[in-house]
């Protein structure tokens, strides 16, 4: 049986407990929310921890407040299942809820939290392996090695951003609240991510992500298309989060973020800009989809081949935009969250 290493456990009861414990030994301390990312990483010895601060019993971190008209705040310890069972989120932010519905499987959504999903470690098939396996490749840059095996000449790590909720929330211009002994700051969620497989978050090691804030839903349409092998469990090999506003027949705002094709949820800015001021015709959508491929940098470190995943960026952006435009589908997304949404009514 795979087992955890030993560590000192701090069961925080208040946010102050947690930030204090973190400030004591930022390098040696890990936070645990739902545990579905940290515990496997510790069991595989990807990550070490002198101490682990448990957030499960911290008061006030779990819950959903507000409404789509004024904006919604979600506590970081809110489970993914809690989100699916919240009708107002479905109404106001369908792209975000679809993304959450696409995450892993129901049993993991019962455990996993939104904060945890946003802070999910980047993934790579050269990294997410057991210690013995990693020893046999001489480890990699994300750990103690000096090579990024997916791009051996590269000076950087190309581990993949693998959260479904992140690109969806980026496309919706959500904000996150970070808390530390120094106080609190609020940043756009896109700024939470760094273009690096190792230091993938801009959050400092003394900060705790406590809240996710969604602005008023307004007339924005949103969706999320996820590509993965199986109907459940798998991480995305591509996630497309799209949010649009239409003014009359033309697009007045557009955001497209791509997950799992870079070390951070990458914005397809040229594609989004191409839509502005235009009506969503098949041609406009196809042109935007083609432009969206450009910022994607899939490499051979997930399921499927990288050439195909790059091609799928076009197909999925096209598909997501067609869905929002009400056009008949050309491609079918491998996961669209329907089953989870029906189950968790």
């Amino acid at each position: 049986m795979m087992r955890l290493p030993t560590f000192t456990y701090v069961g925080a009861k208040t946010l102050e407990d947690a930030v204090t414990a973190l400030a004591d030994d930022p390098e040696g301390t890990r936070l645990v929310a739902g545990g579905t990312d940290l515990w496997p990483n510790l069991k595989r010895r990807h990550q070490g921890a002198r101490s682990v601060v448990g957030l499960r019993r911290v008061a006030g971190l779990r819950g959903i407040t507000g409404d789509p008209a004024a904006g919604v705040t979600i506590g970081a310890m809110t489970t993914l299942t809690d989100i699916l069972r919240c009708p107002m989120l479905r109404d106001g932010y369908p792209g975000f809820v679809r993304a959450v519905a696409s995450i892993s499987s129901p049993v993991l959504r019962n455990m996993g939290t939104l904060g945890g999903n946003l802070c999910l470690d980047t993934r790579c098939t050269y990294y997410n392996q057991n210690e013995e396996w990693r020893q046999s490749i001489g480890y990699c840059m994300k750990e103690v090695g000096d090579t990024c095996w997916v791009a051996p000449g590269s000076p950087r790590c190309w581990a993949v951003q693998a959260s479904d909720s992140a690109p969806a929330l980026c496309s919706l211009d959500a904000h996150v609240v970070l808390h530390s002994t120094a106080g609190e700051r609020v940043i756009p969620i896109a700024d939470l991510y760094n273009d690096d497989g190792i230091v993938y978050l801009t959050k400092s090691r003394t900060e705790i992500l406590t809240e996710i804030r969604l602005g008023p839903a307004g007339a924005r349409r949103s969706t999320y298309w996820k590509l993965r092998r199986r109907g459940s469990i798998d991480f995305p090999v591509l996630g497309v989060g799209v949010a649009l506003e239409l003014d009359g027949g033309t697009v007045s705002s557009a955001k497209i973020h791509l997950g799992a094709v870079h070390s951070f949820p990458v914005a397809a800015t040229a594609a989004a800009a191409h839509l502005l001021g235009k009506s969503l015709t098949e041609d406009v959508i196809a042109e935007a989809a083609e432009l969206a491929k450009d910022p994607a940098s899939p490499l051979d470190n997930t399921d499927f081949t990288l050439q195909w995943r790059r091609r799928m960026v076009g197909s999925y952006v096209d598909g997501a935009l067609r869905e929002l435009a009400g056009l008949p589908p050309k491609a079918t997304p491998s996961v669209h969250g329907e089953g989870a949404l029906a189950l968790e009514v």
Binding site: S105, T125, N128, R229, R230, G231, S232, I233, D234, F235, D303, G339
Partner: peptide, 9 residues
């Protein structure tokens, strides 16, 4: 996880 075995779905 990565050796793919079909799920209920």
């Amino acid at each position: 996880l990565e050796y793919k075995s079909p799920t209920f779905l």
